[in-house]
Amino acid sequence: MKVKLAVLIISAMIVATVFAEVYPSKPLNFIAPGGPGGGWDTTIRVVAQTLKETRLVTQPIVVTNMPGGGGGVGLAHMQTKKGDPYTIIVFSPPLLLINLTGQTQYSFRDLTPLAMLIHDYGAFAVSKNSKYNTISQVMDALKKDPKSVKVGGISAFGSMDHIQFLMAAKAAGVTNLKDITYVSFQEGEHLAALLGGHIDVLSTGLAEVTAALQTGTIKVLAITAPQRVHGTLATVPTLKEEGIDAEFVNWRGLFGPLEMPDYAVEYWINTLSKMVQTIEWDRVVAKYNWTKAFMPGKEFMNYLEKVNEDYKVVLKELGLYKGE
């Protein structure tokens, strides 16, 4: 009996080491902490597709949507997966914001950053018939009366769309950030609200304004990128060009759970660094008007520490910061 047990244990150990060598040896679990069709969902599905197409990963990749709590539900789920080399999640600035505003006790420090992959940016748009033609005009109006401009966005109060506008407003010299009206539209009515004149400015992502700009129904006043982007939005100036010294990066990257084994972390940093050099990746990045921004594990972590402080400043000013 004892011999049998010993044999079993030894063979299990052998199997374990063999498994470790040929990682990944099982299907991989990719998680989008939001619903189908959103930015997180698109990013992780495109990554899964590219890894498959380029045959960098031959194991099947299963993408699961885990929406709720602005990403908090997915983040909480990752806490139950500590040490699991097979679960990977995508995140972007809300990962930090929902922690700073006290919506979740977990932070980016409760994940293992694998790599930042892309940068996306924000855009500020007005209706075609709006009296505003530049972002500075909007900011001047806000300086006179912070209640005179109604801003709308998709994400919740205190999250990305709101914060990016306030960061710009702050840099432009608007003082009463708290008094600026911000309304969140989460059921797809944001563009209709802008075109129908129910809000004055729409603060959202590049992808959300591209189509409407092409149809000529809106004017995009500025983007939050450090340089102009390619494609349809190439004619839109950056905030800096407009004399507002601010930028807002909607970075997106992949994370493993806390205590993810080193071999898995190494594998993913390697694999992803190879993926971002493929033509297939270039193609999808161009398709979605993203900017390539590969940054591996440790560097990514340092970056997160830095931007976390930036967000904190704005949230403090709004009275939304719930920390020490």
Partner: peptide, 27 residues
């Protein structure tokens, strides 16, 4: 016709239109 999705499902379709570089709208 306007590039305004009427539901979550329509929003995904709009996303697909844009991936192809198509402009929703009368045009």
């Amino acid at each position: 016709t306007l590039g305004i999705p009427g539901s979550g499902t329509a929003a995904i379709m709009l996303g697909a239109l844009m991936i192809y570089g198509l402009q929703p709208g009368p045009l």
